[in-house]
Design a protein around this nucleic acid. Structure first.
Lengths: 200, 200, 200, 200
DNA sequence: TATGAATGAGGTTTCATTCAT
DNA sequence: CATGAATGAAACCTCATTCAT
């Protein structure tokens, strides 16, 4: 990893744990192992580090979203509730590539803290934690509905419920402390159980 | 309002908007209209202001909770879904006296920001946003169940759903910008609608 | 002298010798004997020190100018060239109270350096070194003319010449190094001689 | 123009506008379109740029002066005052080749600012703005005197006056803002008028 | 010739805090 | 109760410069 990437990596870890304001340039440089003046060779100022992280995240998200819309869900013959709950698309994209992805996970925490100080981040936060997931769930459950799993008219209420659960569990499990395998498993388990217990 | 209360009031507004670290003693004193040195007559240090707010909030919450457990829900003869959704206890305590209460609302925002920097606040945040409400809902829906509104065995899944909705809508509606009447109405409306549409 | 005045005094000496940019807050504080943070109790920022000096100078100049316009020159019976050259008003106001005054002298040097970086100072510099003196000389020589010393129509060309000499000698004698008695005498002598040699 | 010359050109413009200290290597390189490290291939350090400019100016001045002393003024039969005031030598050398020459003009401004921080520059400044012009005027007016235009004994006082006017007008017209044609014409006009109005 | 990367020194400013009055 | 004055520590950032490539 080159110096610039190292700085972004360290900054992301620190910002997502203590917040942008509470992390000093000294802290970052100390951890990266460079002098403060060196940092300013790579970034215009402190804000520029944050902006770079945000832009990297935006690109990352755009990549994921365009990926999702391309890949069609294979029509399965007989879906059990547990299949639905664990819909591969959701497992793969929402969890593996997003909530569980180390970079995204830290960015979400960072956005959660910084939404209160930074308008651009608030908008991004609302998009990536509320609007985008909602649309993805709609997309997924509509497909499932078209495969006869639910009547069309239930899709929306199911999606709302699903979304509410995912959101609450995300806040509960994924946004503080390290993202350990244990946490991830607990989260996935609770998502699936909740859904199986309440679907339809 | 005396000086000490004014300081706490101003500090709460600023902390809940910009975060504890980002607010300076100067900012607070400037807004209160006193010199920095004066503040130290009323508070030991900056942390002491935050602690005082936290303690005031704890007392406030304790008062609310003990109140709730005392007041029994009047048995109504025939409950419609909409009555359940708008259960008076929940409206009165969760909304009017808690989420919509100016002091509590700002404290929740403050805790939301500071949970990441402050262990005591994280614990309090989890208690007041997740554990306590969950218990209150359980309490309420058990009573309703004992009045024959739901079968006993559905209570838990209903509570989970209710809790998930309330949590998500709280994050969506009540934690940024001013707590206007418009916002409050939108929130209350969405809570009731969601519940009516999905209860049972 | 209180701390604020000490800071202004030291700053003026340093600014007028090395220029505003080249003088650091550290330099000033080191010389005054205070910590940098103390300086910021008395001044908002570095620019504020310069502005305070400029404002003090403006007030000083305004005082001088209003004084001059009030005091009438006593009509003397027989004026020799040397009397004219050494017109009391000019000696007293232009030299003693302005060019030779330690505060003004340093301010002129300061303005001379800073006219190139600072628009407000450029304007003030042109006013106090060109416009104001020209008007004062006009005022003085008109009075002398009305006392029959020169024909009215020569006043303007005499004033131009006087002004040019004073300006050149000012640049030559008074704007670098300490303002010693020796320098002041050399300046006064050269002014008087030049004028006696060329008047009329 | 090669890189070294470009650097000197840009540096001169910036130094003469903002002063040596206030201009950074970054500023210069940014404007030239090279990296800071590249500058150090052409110059030992920042001071070396200033020194190079000063030396180039010294050479330039030496060339002018030696030129002047070689070229004799053509004896004209009948000189009017206006011819004297606009003496070709002065117009050509003092104005066209010196005060109006873009390089010299900027160097004079630079020296004017830097005389206060740099002893070598102070000496050069006094020589090129006071001593040299005085000697040139003496030279010119002595020649005119030997052509019978003035009596020998008036030469010195005329030169003093001329010098004072030129100096004052130089400070007034030529040392801030761009050296536009308008400015140059205004300056030349004022010089000639002043002289015609007061010669002899 | 030119550059990418790094650095030590120093710049201005803000911060929470203290203490005598 | 309140303030004026001071301070040490630390914040962000810029500077001229170096050196391997």
């Amino acid at each position: 990893m080159n110096t610039k990437d190292k700085i972004m990596d360290v900054a992301l870890h620190m910002f997502s744990e203590r917040g942008y304001e509470a992390v000093s340039i000294r802290d970052i440089c100390g951890s990266v192992g460079i002098k403060e003046s060196t940092l300013y060779y790579h970034f215009k100022n402190k804000k520029d580090i944050l902006d770079s992280l945000v832009n990297k995240f935006k690109d990352h998200i755009d990549g994921l979203l365009s990926h999702i819309s391309e890949i069609p869900e294979k029509p399965s013959k007989k879906l059990k509730k547990s299949d639905v709950a664990a819909s591969k698309l959701i497992d793969t994209y929402m969890m593996d590539s997003y909530l569980f992805d180390p970079f995204c996970n830290l960015m979400i925490r960072l956005m959660m803290i910084e939404q209160f100080h930074n308008d651009e981040i608030r908008v991004l936060y609302e998009k990536t934690l509320f609007t985008d997931p909602y649309n993805i769930y709609m997309n997924v459950f509509r497909r499932l509905s078209s495969q006869g799993v639910f009547p069309e008219e239930q899709v929306e209420s199911i999606v709302r419920r699903y979304h509410a659960y995912m959101t609450m569990l995300t806040f509960k499990h994924l946004l503080n402390g390290d993202l350990t395998d244990k946490r991830k498993k607990a989260y996935a388990k609770e998502v699936h159980e909740l859904m199986c217990g309440t679907l339809i």
